[in-house]
Nucleic acid binder design. Structure first.
Lengths: 154, 154
DNA sequence: ATAATGAAGGTCAATGATGGTCAAAAATCA
DNA sequence: TGATTTTTGACCATCATTGACCTTCATTAT
């Protein structure tokens, strides 16, 4: 669907492997050649789609025999995971970041898709109807933190 | 009926596709070219004829390979009941009356107990952290209405 | 051991490709 | 006519692509 640009295609390719492998090691220029793009585009894809916020850990080594390793973090320790999430939310948060957080909660199976959708509906600017954007983002952050905190005890 | 102006024609074109497809992804400038109008007219059509009130969900992405996706939400009856509930909520609502509303939604099976708990967690005074009680009640009402409105579809 | 060389990966800023906003002008409606 | 809706276009924001230049590491030659 939304795979018209090369970055999306590369992202899908890598995530497909990560769905089965839990960790991959790639050669930047090889992958770039495979998708007919410049090597630095691989960095772009990683920087925008494999952030720690999104649950990925990336390491690399330069020089001969260099590599880029992408690891999908597993949230074995739920409490720590939620702590990190709350820290990431902070005291103010935009709607798009909110949606990313909810998406993560879906992936870790702490929320169902329907639940996330219900919550997203309420956290919209349209729903909140708070003129001052900063106030809106603060309220959103407060509620999101309350939600995530509440998830600890279920 | 069949509009005389371009906006109506574009609306009809998109809705005709949506009658069979449930979701479409368009390229703004392509569609604009197709109908001989400026790209921003597509935004106008969407803003006036594909609102959430009318049961549509619109997402978009800018940049290379960008798109506008329009999704037709599936309707669920209960309309009558939801209308009354929204009216009952009004423009401000206390936490206890909020909890009663959620309880009703559980009883009509529009929400599960877990969903209601999650929502209640977020709608608390502690969660909102808004000093001015009246502002808090207004925000709560706004969100609750957005939620109930969202329950019209699924 | 040291220096030179080649083989990775990293950064960043310019450019291109989309979509978004807003307000004025034009058309239409009541 | 006055109000509302539609049409346009100038200007903006965001995302993607590319390439020149930089840093790091391993290997080879001296």
């Amino acid at each position: 669907m939304a795979g018209q640009n090369i970055s999306d295609i590369i992202e899908a390719y890598l995530k497909q492997i990560l769905a089965a492998e839990q960790q991959i090691e790639i050669n930047r220029s090889e992958v770039a050649a495979q998708f007919n793009c410049v090597p630095s585009q691989i960095n772009y894809v990683i920087k925008t789609r494999f952030t720690t916020q999104q649950g990925y850990l990336v390491e690399s080594k330069r020089g001969g025999g260099g590599y880029i390793r992408i690891e999908k973090m597993q949230f074995c320790d739920q409490d720590h995971y939620l702590d990190r999430l709350i820290k990431a939310i902070g005291t103010q948060i935009t709607l798009s970041r909110t949606l990313m957080a909810l998406q993560q909660l879906i992936e870790t199976e702490l929320l169902s898709e329907r639940e996330a959708r219900l919550l997203a509906t309420m956290l919209t600017d349209e729903a909140l109807q708070i003129n001052d954007q900063r106030v809106a983002e603060t309220v959103r952050a407060n509620m999101l933190v309350a939600l995530v905190d509440g998830l600890r005890y279920r």
